[in-house]
Design a protein around this nucleic acid. Structure first.
Ligand SMILES: NC(=O)c1ccc[n+]([C@@H]2O[C@H](COP(=O)([O-])OP(=O)(O)OC[C@H]3O[C@@H](n4cnc5c(N)ncnc54)[C@H](O)[C@@H]3O)[C@@H](O)[C@H]2O)c1
Ligand SMILES: NC(=O)c1ccc[n+]([C@@H]2O[C@H](COP(=O)([O-])OP(=O)(O)OC[C@H]3O[C@@H](n4cnc5c(N)ncnc54)[C@H](O)[C@@H]3O)[C@@H](O)[C@H]2O)c1
Lengths: 215, 215
DNA sequence: GGTGCTTTGTGAACGTGTGCACGAGCGGGG
DNA sequence: CCCCGCTCGTGCACACGTTCACAAAGCACC
């Protein structure tokens, strides 16, 4: 039965995890249904946007009532591909890589840290917070064995492109880059970045250009 | 002298730091001028976008030649408010807060970590990587003394809103939130978020919905 | 079974961002 | 001094995203 040939806009995709988190809260509180208005408030957006976003998933609401929390959460998880685990490999077992490895929030949400990869021979073979550290050359085998599907780049910026190339060559199709540099990946590989210095600079821009206090 | 009543689009503001980083690289290599095409390649965008973005800063290019690297970098730094330091306070000296405190990339770019703030009494009074840890009650005084202008929230999500409220009440106008929850701030306070689980979920969405390999 | 209240789903208008295409203007060479 | 090639700056058309506003549709109560 045609699932509907809908194409979900990128902006909507980025909001789905926020809605899902709100739904999880409601589930915890045993709230059975939720209106777009309430969900909008929890997600920090407006109600029309919530309704339009949810409509891309299908018509899962009931007019006059709202959305059934559990059912909507399930449909959304399915859409986001969260009905299975996505093991991740963290590239670079330094300051950041170790902090990420120590973070429970990933495993909880279906993104178990399968391994750390580091070029530093003295780190290879050790375990960090229980997670084994391997050499870069081991990556292709690990991808096969452990079904690793996401690579997190936490190496110095200077080697980030080379590391990304290696990650792609090892068969990984999704990359999250923390190194403050632009990296290029071939078509068919998904890339997102987290750039802290950029965020701070954007903040300093707006603070510098503060709208003069209006009445 | 009207500086020009230009209003820079948000999307452009987010790209300026990327251009600036590219310009810094060129400066290192003693490259005197750069074309929009080359800059576009380095920043991973297209040339028309670069030219349009830069035009919001003013007419700093020379037709037939390109942009003078040093001059453009200066103008961009000025626009981003990077001609002065913006001391930051990190809220929460846990796993993430400590990793951030240990990261040199902030100070290098004009965002020195002035202090860590933690509610845990046993941490207060210690130093982490040379950065002193204070109690939440000390924050307003520190904001005054050290000129802290940005607060980074690295506390558990459950207390993030309360911490944000405290940060705002202490006189800080810009917040970068790492806690995976929506927080609200009053008008006039700038808020940006870094949400790792969201990024991973977006990646899993696209990997799940991979466009069937086209010829 | 009808009436009225509530809330969804979506067309349409608006605003923002992107990318092409080309005229304007500069530098260099003859 | 003029001409030619190069690259910027920008008007314009298009795509994408947001918001409004309202008809459609369900529920509850009588
Ligand atoms: N630490 C932070 O809080 C923070 C914040 C924002 C961004 N970043 C960025 O994250 C990256 C890592 O930062 P960090 O502080 O962890 O640095 P780090 O120097 O502590 O760690 C880098 C690690 O990468 C390893 N490495 C080097 N080359 C490698 C290769 N080719 N393959 C695999 N591993 C390799 C090194 O051995 C080292 O263990 C940097 O690009 C940094 O700019 C860090
Ligand atoms: N660790 C990571 O790699 C990582 C990655 C992504 C997101 N996060 C998010 O960042 C936040 C911090 O993560 P973490 O791993 O550092 O947690 P953590 O538990 O290690 O640290 C939290 C710290 O905040 C302190 N704290 C608690 N209440 C406080 C208050 N009211 N005021 C000031 N400090 C307070 C605690 O004492 C503790 O030191 C969490 O919201 C987490 O979801 C962490």
């Amino acid at each position: 039965m045609g699932d509907g040939a809908r194409h979900i806009p990128e902006a909507t995709v980025s909001r789905l995890p926020v809605y899902l988190r709100s739904l999880a809260e409601l589930l915890d509180d045993n709230v059975p249904t939720v209106s777009s208005e309430r969900l909008a408030e929890m997600a920090g957006v407006n109600a029309a946007k919530v309704r339009k976003d949810l409509s891309y998933l299908g018509s899962y609401g009931t007019r006059g009532v709202g959305y059934e929390v559990e059912y909507l959460a399930f449909q959304m998880s399915r859409e986001l591909g969260l009905t299975r685990d996505w093991p991740v490999a963290i590239m670079g077992a330094g300051n950041l890589g170790q902090a990420l490895a120590n973070y429970g929030g990933f495993t909880d949400r279906g993104f178990p840290v399968a391994c750390l990869i580091d070029a530093d021979e003295s780190k290879v073979g050790t375990r960090i917070h229980g997670i084994p550290v391997y050499a870069p050359a081991d990556l292709p085998g690990l991808v096969q064995e452990l079904g690793i599907s996401i690579g997190i780049i936490a190496t110095p910026a200077t080697v980030a492109q080379a590391v990304a190339d290696h990650v792609v060559a090892s068969g990984i199709k999704s990359i999250l880059n923390f190194a403050p540099t632009v990296i290029n990946v071939p078509e068919g590989t998904f890339l997102r970045k987290v750039d802290l210095a950029l965020e701070l600079q954007v903040l300093s821009f707006y603070q510098e250009h503060r709208t003069p206090d209006r009445v």
